[in-house]
Design a protein around this nucleic acid. Structure first.
Lengths: 218, 218
DNA sequence: AAATATATTTAGTCTTATCTAAATTTGCTG
DNA sequence: CAGCAAATTTAGATAAGACTAAATATATTT
């Protein structure tokens, strides 16, 4: 049985590995966990000793297959609960992250599976992220970041990269949501801001925002 | 913010107070928490310092009004989640206790209230226990223990006192469940076992079992 | 009321997860 | 490739919650 702290570290190592496709460094991990490098080192040593990560001193760490499967289970639970909160309880998509952070640690395989069934085996959570199935399988995504689109290209907003409160509230404010049809009208070379047409509305978003929106090309 | 350990102690102090209507002793608390008396003392001191219990050294403790309200909130969450697990996810009533022990610690007032609404404001959980409402109000019970009934008296099984796995599985085995119509046919003076008629079936239960079934007299 | 038994508290230790400060390793720069 | 900067690890401390053993208070019995 893993502690919540161990689970949280595993989840974060998984996210960093997926994002960077490289060994996870102590500093990067510590920063994401909002803790100190020495604490991250301690935890990496413990996880290594439990064979959940492959860790080489001063070099970095990656999940072992056992660790990866644990991490995916946690991600699965997180996304199922987020789906439950939005679909069944009527929360907004910008309110569910913190609650799901707690719910993802509930230990019960049968609970997870019954919840999955109750939700009718959803493939994506409210933020557009794929939900691993009971075997840990995740549907491959063919989406790219909005920042990678060229002028005149168009697509559908399928997911957000940043699921934080603040970012989601910003999207609500500019009236943008999953499923929107987006066309790139212009890209400013000097700051990478992007002018887009979204459902007939024209607006400009920063380069940073564009890097946090997943688009499926049309 | 209370730790899970603190919450669990508060819940148990509440249960003991309700059960015994007396000051809660260190030993009784330690036994319920499956820990040692010294640990219970430590926690009572901490809870007293946080003004959640009124505690007198060597005499015992009782919840302060603040502590009681915290405890009731936890009980409310526990019972709502049990109801959810049985009503919505299809668990059996003997499978939900341990999962609800975890879920009751999820921190989110709006989650609790939305769950309550989703379940359509249930008054009783699957074990027949009353669910405190959003204000902490609990419907008064007019039920008594089956062990208190006399020969020839009858009633409806409205709740169980012991919600443990083992006890609930036993009830399933003898085909007894909430709502059953029960009539006392005989009481053995030497061991307090009770012969009852339950939905036309005649069976004998031990005195201990009779002390764990709440009956509403007809 | 003294003696003994039981209940409770205190003192000191352990584990987990955190921190700061110091030591060490790696990597970059000239 | 020497030297410095940045990254990482180690050492030692802290807080929460548990434990054991010892000390103390309360309760019971004679």
């Amino acid at each position: 049985m893993l502690s919540q702290a161990e689970e949280n570290y595993l989840k974060e190592i998984y996210a960093l590995e997926e994002e960077t496709m490289q060994l996870v460094s102590t500093n990067a991990l510590a920063e994401k966990m909002r803790t100190k490098a020495s604490s991250a080192t301690d935890m990496l040593q413990k996880l290594a000793q439990k064979a959940l990560v492959d860790y080489t001193k001063y070099r970095g760490a990656r999940l072992s297959s056992k660790g990866k499967s644990k991490a995916i289970t946690i991600v699965r639970k997180h996304r199922l609960w987020e789906t439950f909160l939005v679909e069944k309880l009527g929360f907004n998509w910008d309110e569910v992250h913190d609650i799901a952070e707690q719910l993802e640690h509930i230990q019960s395989q049968s609970l997870t599976d019954k919840l999955d069934a109750f939700l009718e085996y959803p493939s994506f959570d409210p933020h557009g992220h794929p939900i691993p199935n009971v075997n840990g399988k995740i549907v491959a995504s063919d989406s790219i970041l909005l920042s990678e689109l060229n002028v005149d290209e168009e697509g559908i907003l399928v997911a957000v990269k940043d699921s934080s409160d603040g970012f989601l509230k910003y999207l609500s404010k500019i009236n943008m949501t999953i499923g929107d049809h987006i066309k790139v009208l212009d890209i400013e070379a000097f700051d990478n801001s992007v002018t887009i047409e979204n459902n007939t509305t024209r607006l400009s978003i920063s380069g940073n925002v564009a890097k946090n929106l997943y688009i499926k090309r049309l």
